[in-house]
Simulated scan of single mutants.
Amino acid sequence: MILNKDCVLCNINQDPEQQILLENDHCLYIQKLSEQEVLEGSGLIIPKNHVETAFDLSSKEWSATKELMDQAKTMLDETYAPDGYSVGWNVYPIGGQHIPHAHLHIIPRFKDEPYAGRGIRYWMKQKENKRT
C-alpha cells in the first residue's frame, strides 16, 4: 500500500473526528463529525493508496469506489431518507481540491434545505464566474 505520512486522508485515525463507516480492499467510506451539522450524512469515499486525483485511480480502485458508493447510498437512504444526492470529485486546487488525495463526495440532499435544487454546477454557472 502506498501512503503519504503527511496526508490527512492517508492517516484517517489521527483525526478523532473521522469515522470509517464502510471499507473494502481498496477504499474507505468516511464521515467527519464536525461536518454533520450542516451537511447531514455527508461523507467521502477515498482510496486506501495515496492517489492524488480521480484521474489517477486504478481500475480496481474505480470498481471499489462504485461498490462503496452503492453501500453508502443504501446506508444513507435507511438512516436519513434524503430527497436527492450531490456526488462529485474536485480535482486540483482550481477545481476545489484542497487535500491532494482523491476523494469522492457523497452528499445527501433534502427538499427543506435552503439550497435544495442547486446542484454541483450551480455556482459555476453564475455570470460572476465568467472568465475575463
Rank of each mutant, 00 (worst) to 15 (best):
L9A: 07
L9V: 01
L9S: 00
Q14G: 12
Q14I: 00
P16V: 11
Q18V: 13
E23G: 10
N24V: 01
D25V: 02
C27P: 03
K32L: 08
K32D: 08
K32A: 05
L33G: 01
L33C: 02
S34I: 07
E35P: 00
E35F: 04
E35A: 03
E35Q: 08
E37T: 06
L39Q: 15
L39A: 15
E40W: 08
G41M: 02
G41V: 03
S42W: 05
L44W: 07
I46E: 03
P47K: 10
P47H: 12
H50Q: 05
V51I: 15
E52H: 11
A54S: 11
F55Q: 15
K60Y: 08
W62G: 00
W62Y: 14
A64V: 04
L68E: 00
D70S: 14
Q71H: 13
A72S: 12
K73Q: 14
T74K: 14
T74V: 11
M75G: 00
L76W: 03
D77M: 11
T79A: 13
Y80P: 00
Y80I: 10
Y80Q: 03
A81M: 05
P82F: 10
D83H: 14
D83S: 15
D83N: 15
G84F: 09
Y85Q: 05
V87Y: 05
V87C: 09
G88H: 11
W89G: 02
N90R: 09
N90W: 06
V91P: 01
Y92L: 15
I94E: 13
G95Q: 03
I99L: 10
I99C: 09
P100W: 04
P100T: 06
H101Y: 14
H105F: 05
I106L: 13
I106R: 01
I107L: 10
I107Q: 04
P108E: 11
P108Q: 08
P108W: 09
F110W: 11
K111W: 04
K111M: 05
E113T: 12
Y115D: 11
G117A: 07
R118E: 12
G119L: 01
G119K: 01
I120V: 14
I120K: 04
R121I: 09
R121L: 14
R121Y: 14
W123I: 09
M124S: 15
Q126G: 01
K127Y: 05
N129E: 11
N129K: 02
K130A: 13
T132C: 02
